[in-house]
Every structure is written in structure tokens, then in C-alpha cells.
Amino acid sequence: MDALVNKRIAKVLKGDQNAFAEIVELYQHQLYQICYRMLGNKQEAEDIAQEAFMRAYVNIHTFDQKRKFSTWLYRIATNLCIDRIRKKKPDYHLDAEVRGTEGLNMYSEIANNDELPEEELMRMEVQERVQYEISRLPDKYRAAIVLKYIEELPLAEISEILDLPLGTVKTRIHRGREALRKQLSNL
């Protein structure tokens, strides 16, 4: 897989844009998934995932081919997601209707400590509920949980993606897990 990707990267470095399309093809679903789980919104996930690929393309000459490409790519994406989550809070008018949704305003998008009423939680599908609870996690726990349990990556790789020591990654996973357990206890 890595040799295959490196061959594509060599072509991209020579200016072959089509070789990059093959790289996008290979990683699109995983990258989109990470962004979607982090952001909890399909349009934003698509936007950020595309942005991540774009940045990877522009900076491809800085990628060290001895390392794993997916790690580098996921790192770009998680950083963009975390930036977006942090920016999102003060930036938006909460009453503004969200583009492409019916009747949803930013109150429904802002996924933080405001809990939804119990009966609304009960009406949610399990999948929906899990996503909602993930998006209520603080962003640093969220990234670790998504990489560990949705992408199912080894701890060492998560530590490289998040640029954190292994111990810190473990702590974040443990705390994120514990927070989710409490949030999901009535399921």
C-alpha cells in the first residue's frame, strides 16, 4: 500500500495531477469519515476533507516518504477539524438558518454541553445518538476517540497523528471513553 502510494506521490511531484486523483480515491472515505465524526455535519465534513486533500497536494513536497502517508494526511485533517470546531463557536449567528437544512439553525449545530431534552434523545436512532454524543465531547477527546474506535488505528499511530506523547493519547481515550459511558448510560 505504502509503495503504491509513494509511486503516486512521485508522479504528483513531477506535476501529474491525475496521480493525485488516485490518492484521493484511496483515502476519501476514511478522511471523510474522520471529518464527519469530528464535526457531526455532512457539509462541513465534505468541505474540510476537501480542504485537507488540497493542503496535502500543495505541501506534498514536504511529506517524508519514509513515513506513512495516511498518518500525515489524517494529521492535516484532524488539525483542520479542531481549528474549525474552535472557530465555529463564537463566529456564527446562532439564529442563522444552516445552509441546506430545513429549519435547522445553529442551535442545533453547536454540539457542546447543552443537553437535548430527554424525550428527544429517546427518539433518536442509535447511530444518530452515538454521533451526537461524540460531538458533545471536548475536541481533544473527540479526535482521540474517533481515531481509536472509528478508524481503529493503533495507539502509536494516533500519537503521531495528534503529535502527542503516547501517555497523553491514552489518557484522552480513557477520559473520552468514560465521558461517553456516562452520556450513553440511558441507552
Binding site: 495531477q17 493525485f20 486523483a21 484521493v24 480515491e25 476519501q28 472515505h29 478522511l31 471523510y32 469519515q33 464527519y36 465524526r37 465534505e46 476533507a49 476537501q50 480542504e51 486533500f53 488540497m54 497536494y57 500543495v58 442509535v126 447511530q127 452515538v130 454521533q131 461524540i134 476517540i145 474506535y149 472509528i150 481503529e152 471513553r177 468514560e178 461517553l180 459511558r181 450513553l184 448510560s185 441507552l187
Partner: peptide, 30 residues
């Protein structure tokens, strides 16, 4: 409870990127 939580998170169905994702991404490249 923790095991159940993990199972729930892992069961979050693996979603796929939209079908025009590659095309749109390539359109955004400089």
C-alpha cells in the same frame, strides 16, 4: 458499560464520502 459504549461507537456505521467527492476535490486544486 464501558464495553457497551465502545461497541456503540464502533457500530456507528461507516459512512462513505459523496460520490462526486474526488471530482470536487480535484476541482479545488490549484
Amino acid at each position: 458499560e464501558l464495553s457497551k459504549t465502545i461497541a456503540f461507537v464502533q457500530s456507528a456505521s461507516h459512512i462513505q464520502a459523496p460520490s462526486d467527492f474526488v471530482q470536487k476535490t480535484m476541482g479545488r486544486l490549484p
